[in-house]
Design a protein around this nucleic acid. Sequence first.
DNA 1: TTGACGAATGATTGCGCAATCATTTATCAC
DNA 2: GTGATAAATGATTGCGCAATCATTCGTCAA
Lengths: 303, 303
Amino acid sequence: MRIRVEEAIRKLGYSPDPAASALASKVTYNIGLLLPSLTNTVFEDVLEGIYQGSEDTRFFIQIGDTRYSALKEEALIGTFLRQKPAGLIVTGFEQTEKARGMLAGAHCPVVQIMDFGEPPIDMSVGFDHEAAGYAAARHLIECGYRTPGAVGARLDSRSRRRLDGFRKACQEVGLWDEHRMVITPQSSSVGLGRHLLEELLSRDQSVDAVFCNNDDLGIGALMEARRRLISVPEQLGICSFHDMEMTQHMYPALTAIATPRFQIGKMAIDMLLAEIEEPHSVKRRNIDTGFKLVVRDSTRRAG
Amino acid sequence: MRIRVEEAIRKLGYSPDPAASALASKVTYNIGLLLPSLTNTVFEDVLEGIYQGSEDTRFFIQIGDTRYSALKEEALIGTFLRQKPAGLIVTGFEQTEKARGMLAGAHCPVVQIMDFGEPPIDMSVGFDHEAAGYAAARHLIECGYRTPGAVGARLDSRSRRRLDGFRKACQEVGLWDEHRMVITPQSSSVGLGRHLLEELLSRDQSVDAVFCNNDDLGIGALMEARRRLISVPEQLGICSFHDMEMTQHMYPALTAIATPRFQIGKMAIDMLLAEIEEPHSVKRRNIDTGFKLVVRDSTRRAG
DNA sequence: TTGACGAATGATTGCGCAATCATTTATCAC
DNA sequence: GTGATAAATGATTGCGCAATCATTCGTCAA
């Protein structure tokens, strides 16, 4: 009987209507993914992990681009929930009150990614951004740099906390001056990195090290240093953030805080699928992935 | 009456069920977008254009990642069509026979992007890759380079045609040797760009210019040249492809064939929305956006 | 053979909306 | 005021499936 039916399916080229299925069963095989940006290389790797973890399952990843706007995010959460997703992955902890309410009341598991600290709405996987910024500062200080600065763009809460951590570590050893923190709401780019280093140097010519809030800025800073014939790492140490593939191939290679973006994506989808399969089966619901300092030539001073 | 209804909607927090709507009307507000890769910066800008063009409309972009596989693409086209999308955007002209059949029979407009040449299934917007490669070669030749090579990765049909065009221009002036074409099926990265230049130089030390099939490779080649103390552009001219933001900030800045990725995305979504709004209203259904040679220091030899 | 039980199969209902048709109400010219 | 037309409103049906219930069939022990 089953065989006969399956033969007919093949012969007629039948395939079920997902809309009818969703209407009748009140659930779909869609997994909603909310990212603040798709044009930010940081999220490419997260995406890669999520795709890899959901390949060959019946689930379909539906991406929403919030453009770093909590309101757009709120609207998208509404749109997604209306479609009765099987699960939801959202970036960070900074949803609007209403969005948090919707997520808390959702009839599906929810994973918050890229951050660690606050208790999650449901589950979370990420790392502590303040600790990461702190680690960057400690590294520069231990390398002997004494006039550290920092540059940052597109200041979402996570970026801000990285800079907070950096500032804190510098203050602890009495090496901080707030003038050496150059930030802008503009979205980050290599060109902006060059510009921000320029601004930093114009504010304080004695700056001997800079923490760049992400790799675009790091590469930009490196190129600007090169243009000005400022030697890296001797005259200027550069520590980048995220460590995308490119940074290790720069010349000199960039020291960076490497963030486990692929792993975060993979763990998030794994947790989500497990929880969809068997509700309440996931035990560790709030995961700190940590980060890693990768020391390369851009901070490796002789002596 | 209308007012009373809308008040009730607000009060009850009612929002229509998209599944029921899709079932009853046989159409949704989803626009399917098939890209070969999301971790390729090339498509970020396309995406940006599409998002910008669909913002504040009732349409929702649904992304599918084909991972450069025609079979995955075929499967995704099936998945998308089952959802009765309002429109579809697919990359390139290399669909499987079956996929082309499905697209041709789709009850919605279809735009093929990133390529120009073949007659489209429905509509298309892109540029001629062979002509772009040809232009790169002509530029290097006109700069006086006499031993041009080329490196390429991830050889989809478009990449291949770029290299074909490059080869053709070199052959026309008797400057070609197939040994100076180094290609690999690996996916492109900066590290790979370094490696491919290494390979190219090991095959023929007299190479004095290289065309890189995309910017990752171009930046990698530049970094490798730097490491080997090969001066750019004097000893080695480098021409990159696509011209993402970063290339102009390299040191020396990279000459590149700039491709109008944002514009392609924007035009594609505009054509699609117009056609959804009013079938057969779009007149120019096969658009050649062209490309632009941007000359910078990496090919600007003194004399 | 009989009864009892579980598995396989068949028949029915409702999900929430859009589309269609049937009805009522408003609008206007004469 | 009348009739004719257009607009607004109301009632009904069906989209294609999943879930539920009702039925039949097969299996086995007594």
